[in-house]
């Protein structure tokens, strides 16, 4: 009754090449987006600390609320089709995709990191002060490592959630995993099988990411388990 024809996907070596390339592009862009997004998110979270000037604080909050309350696809289209017209300069779609991903991820990461920073006990900061550490040293040496450790699980699930939306970059022609699937389905007309395989590949990538996150948890934050 069910006539599955998965072999239609690996019938042509071109299809397989596209899939492999798609996995690579998806992983590459989301990893880069994750790293840069984390750095930008950190800056956004730090800008919200009580010592920073209120202009900076409001700018950071507005940015975060603006991103978090609008869909990624709209941000992506604006960055890809709107910004180049404003600057009168065209850049490759991959760059637009990466920019949109970073802008998007950073707002979500900032929210998680802010919670992490707030979760660090006040006594830690007082101890650092009484040991003459400067504000900057206190933030980077004392607060940040503990903040990361405290919210690492949230950061993991937030990243996975965001990763699962990156397939939208196929809409602007970036040849990621979703794009490869649509390319194949357009040619072998086996949409169902193609998207099942695609889903499996996404799940596998998520497994990979989760494994990396928990490795970091195990080694970088082993002081938390060691009690």
């Amino acid at each position: 009754m069910f006539d599955f024809r998965f072999y239609e996907i690996w019938r042509e070596s071109d299809f397989i090449d596209r899939l492999i390339n798609g996995v690579w592009i998806s992983v590459e862009l989301s990893t880069a987006g994750g790293v840069f997004g984390l750095i930008m998110g950190l800056a956004l979270a730090a800008a919200q600390s009580s010592v920073s000037p209120s202009v900076l604080r409001y700018a950071s909050i507005s940015y975060i609320e603006g991103i978090r309350n609008t869909p990624f696809i709209v941000q992506l289209f604006f960055v890809t089709f709107g910004l180049p017209l404003i600057f009168n300069y065209r850049w490759p779609f991959e760059a637009s995709a990466l920019l949109a991903i970073v802008l998007n991820f950073s707002a979500y990461f900032a929210e998680v990191l802010r919670a992490g920073i707030e979760s660090v006990h006040r006594g830690q900061i007082e101890a650092a002060q009484s040991l003459c550490l400067t504000r900057r040293q206190t933030f980077f040496d004392i607060v940040l490592p503990q903040a990361f450790a405290n919210v690492w699980p949230s950061l993991t699930s937030q990243f996975v959630f965001l990763f699962l939306t990156t397939g939208l970059i196929s809409e602007i022609g970036v040849e990621d995993l979703t794009w490869s699937g649509r390319y194949i389905a357009d040619r072998n007309f086996r949409d169902f099988e193609v998207f099942i395989v695609l889903t499996l590949l996404y799940v596998l990538i998520v497994f990979g990411y989760k494994a990396i996150f928990s490795l970091v948890q195990r080694y970088a934050f082993r002081w938390r388990v060691a009690r």
């Binding site: 830690q124 009484s130 003459c132 450790a149």
Partner: peptide, 29 residues
């Protein structure tokens, strides 16, 4: 502050640093 040491009720050791690094951090920074 560098001439005043302070000991807190709740210790406030830095949980992510080893005992040795807790003691070495301020000297290095």
């Amino acid at each position: 502050r560098r001439n005043i040491g302070m000991v807190f009720q709740s210790f406030n050791l830095f949980p992510h640093l080893s005992v040795l690094d807790n003691c070495a951090l301020a000297q290095r920074r």
